[in-house]
């Protein structure tokens, strides 16, 4: 089945890029599901139903991956056949230092809640996140997948940090 073989950027008919337009993606998933959702085939043959279920699931999978920055970058690496040994670690000393400081901060915040400190570190991590995304973009433009992968690992940490801090703030 041709549809199932298309990569998700082709399926959604959008350019392969680190950024996607969220509302465009929301619109396109509706258009695609409006053609292929199983409910559109509920009085069809078993074969049609099975096919619709497969295609509709594939569309939702694409929607999930394209809609999430980490999954999307992983996917771009995958369709460029870049495979990296997952056990390889990040060897950026500055970054490791940053993460150690961060865990110390969270520990002290757990003992001693301070909303001002939380807000400050949230905005500084958000800034780091933005810089990382920018550098992923430029690596992608120069086809430097190795560097993209390195920065992707950092990105995962920053996102995790931000979620943790938000959780802490709302507690």
């Amino acid at each position: 089945m041709d549809i199932l073989k298309k990569n998700f950027f082709e399926l959604f008919n959008i350019e392969i890029a680190i950024d996607v337009n969220r509302s465009e993606l929301d619109q396109k998933v509706k258009v695609l599901q409006n053609k292929f959702h199983p409910d559109k085939f509920s009085s069809g043959s078993d074969f049609e139903k099975r096919l619709a279920l497969q295609i509709s699931s594939h569309i939702n999978d694409g929607y999930k991956i394209l809609g999430d920055i980490v999954l999307r970058i992983e996917y771009i690496l995958k369709i460029n056949n870049f495979v990296k040994d997952e056990s390889k670690t990040i060897n950026d000393i500055n970054f490791l230092q940053e993460q150690i400081e961060y865990s110390e901060l969270v520990e002290s915040l757990n003992d001693n809640f301070d909303s001002k400190i939380i807000e400050n570190s949230l905005s500084s991590i958000k800034f780091l996140l933005k810089t990382t995304v920018d550098s992923i973009k430029s690596s992608f433009e120069s086809n430097d997948f190795e560097n993209m992968w390195q920065n992707l690992s950092k990105l995962r940490f920053y996102i995790k940090n931000i979620n943790e801090l938000i959780k802490l703030r709302n507690k």
Binding site: N13, F47, L51
Partner: peptide
């Protein structure tokens, strides 16, 4: 059926 579904996605991609 398969061809119809494929052709339908093509018309979507044609934009």
């Amino acid at each position: 059926v398969e061809r119809r579904m494929n052709s339908s996605i093509k018309s979507f991609i044609a934009g």
